[in-house]
Amino acid sequence: MADIRSKINALYSLEQLAAGDTVLHRLHPLGKLLVTFAYLICLLSLDCSSLHRLAPFLFYPIICTAIAAIPAGMILSRAALALPFALLAGISNVFINRTPALRIGGIILSAGMISLLVLALRALLSVSAVLLLVAVTPFPKLTEQLRRLHMPELLIALTEMTYRYLGILAEEGANMLTAFRLRSCGSQWPHLQLFGSMTGQLLLRSFDRAERVYHAIQCRCWHLGRRQISSPPWRIGDWIFLILGAGSSLAFRQFDLMQMIGEHWPW
């Protein structure tokens, strides 16, 4: 059962990195949130056919991972979870659009294949950027900044609760699976008939557990809309990070950096 337990731990391990003390960790959460928003908007609004234009967007996650001393594998392995969804969304392009678009050596890539690659890379990069944000900023501080940006309180509370509920659900699921495996005579997963009732039980048990956690939160004076965390002061470093971070994303979006380099490079 160690695999399930370790997955539960892994679920929140990124968040524990947020307690670090690097330059990136010390920056104002609002600055980091705005830079991530700018990065996502610029990245996701790129044309699906421009593979080369994604290259400059690699800088942000690579530089941030290095500065914040976060294991790159930790980010990549979690970001890779989004890949199947991106591939599923873009796989039809490969069959629909077969126009040759790029030749690399002897290999010709069709426009559909390029759009699939762009979708996959965009998914990988955007999820990495969000994971990086969570890894360098404590989650409560992030949601506090969403409050400052006037995001509806109910949405913020739902985000906070869902995030915690995932762990509760996984833990209850692990307990049920342990009980099942101990009496299943070698069978690792419940068969379809049992799966239905176990899923129902899991839902009820996790509701019960979530209710107890909610009671514990209430006992410590939590209310919808109550401001929880005081923000650190906004420093000159935060301005620099915001201008450099958001500015570079906007520049990469606005100008074709790779083409400019190709045109002006003296080779």
């Binding site: 409560p140 915690r164 762990g167 965390i229 005081s230």
Partner: peptide
């Protein structure tokens, strides 16, 4: 609570202990 897991739901023990005082509106 009977089960301490119900009471500890934040990433670190510091955050968990700080949860109540923050809700009371104390400065950091």
């Amino acid at each position: 609570f009977q089960n301490p897991d119900d009471q500890l739901f934040l990433p670190t023990i510091y955050d968990d202990v700080a949860f109540g005082p923050r809700n009371l509106g104390l400065d950091e």
